[in-house]
């Protein structure tokens, strides 16, 4: 499946789901409604882009959810009370993320194990910083997340912005191409003289940056934090990347697709809730939507391959 085609399916799934949601709940078809539908998808989109950076280099990150929770706790406490210390903690955390990437490459460790271990570290740190739910969102992030731009609601503007930035960063720069190449053929990259340790550290560092942004945005929406606030993001972000046309291997990812994937997942939850589906069925139904999209993708891929063989 070529890159241009890769993006069509996520867009189509989002459009179909959006049409169905508007049909079920016409009230959603407004400035106010769109914002309510999608504003909680903004931090999910950021976490998904973070996960995409890791999947891009053929690894998987099981600590995204706890990392975002940790950042949320820092944002609601230090970043609000002592902005300088808060910013330093966040920078240190991002550096920590990069260091983990370097360590994984240096010692040839399985990322799935290291990040699973790190998820407990981040979770523990979050509880240390905020033992009981609370804290206050800094005014500036609250202002940003509740801003009401003319014509298009904040949630949509933010999603487009995230998609464009991630796209330019990964698809349009030479370093972005290099990072994707690590996922595609790491050995070739190493043989042509690049340091894999540095590249992996860069990919993980980028994931840390987007993860931190996700936590900060989340607190801007919720107004305060909780050490368990974003645990779901780990699985949501992986699903978002795959739903958006990414693949687990080969550096084949799509930043725009990842953002659309995150929006689709968030919308799927609302759609099922509007359908008044019993919660017992909701997890299953969300899974069914995922499987449906993936099987459509598989069908496309197969017919493409057939076409390729015939030519």
């Amino acid at each position: 499946m070529n890159a241009r085609f890769r993006i069509l399916l996520p867009i189509a799934s989002l459009a179909v789901l959006l049409a169905a949601t508007f049909y079920m709940q016409p009230r959603a078809m407004s400035y106010f409604g769109l914002n309510l539908l999608f504003n909680l998808a903004v931090p999910i989109a950021l976490a998904t882009v973070a996960q995409m950076m890791i999947i891009m280099v053929n690894d998987i990150d099981l600590s995204v959810g706890t990392f975002v929770s940790f950042v949320a706790c820092v944002t609601a406490t230090y970043l609000n009370d002592a902005p300088l210390i808060g910013a330093l903690i966040l920078l240190a955390a991002i550096a920590g993320y990069a260091a983990i990437g370097a360590l994984i490459e240096l010692r040839q460790l399985p990322a799935i194990v290291v990040t699973l271990g790190m998820s407990f570290v981040w979770g523990g740190l979050a509880i240390l910083i905020l033992p009981s739910p609370g804290g206050t969102a800094p005014t500036w992030i609250r202002t940003i997340m509740t801003v009401k731009p003319p014509l298009v609601p904040m949630a949509i503007v933010a999603s487009v912005l995230i998609a464009v930035i991630a796209h330019l960063l990964i698809m349009r720069t030479s370093s972005g191409a290099l990072l994707r190449a690590v996922g595609g053929n790491a050995r070739a990259v190493a043989r042509s003289g690049w340091s894999l340790v540095r590249l992996k550290a860069a990919a993980y560092g980028l994931a840390g940056v987007f993860g931190a942004a996700s936590g900060i945005c989340l607190v801007g929406l919720t107004t305060s934090a909780d050490a368990n606030i974003a645990l779901r993001y780990t699985l949501l972000s992986i699903a978002g990347v795959i739903l958006g046309g990414g693949e687990f291997t080969g550096g084949r990812i799509s930043p725009v697709g990842a953002v659309i994937g995150a929006l689709t997942l968030a919308l799927a939850g609302s759609f099922l809730s509007f359908m008044r589906l019993s919660p017992d069925w909701q997890i299953g139904a969300q899974g069914a939507i995922l499987i449906l999209v993936l099987s459509v993708r598989l069908l496309f891929a197969r017919s493409n391959r057939k076409k390729g063989a015939a030519q």
């Binding site: 709940q25 009230r27 959603a28 409604g33 309510l36 539908l37 504003n39 909680l40 931090p43 989340l218 929406l221 919720t222 909780d226 368990n228 606030i229 974003a230 645990l231 779901r232 993001y233 968030a266 939850g269 609302s270 809730s273 509007f274 919660p279 017992d280 909701q282 997890i283 969300q286």
Partner: peptide
């Protein structure tokens, strides 16, 4: 909510506003 998570419940509440 299908999972006991605050972010999911926040989304659920926003859906109720829409409803």
């Amino acid at each position: 909510t299908s999972e006991n998570q605050a972010t999911e419940q926040a989304a659920q509440i926003q859906n109720m506003i829409l409803q």
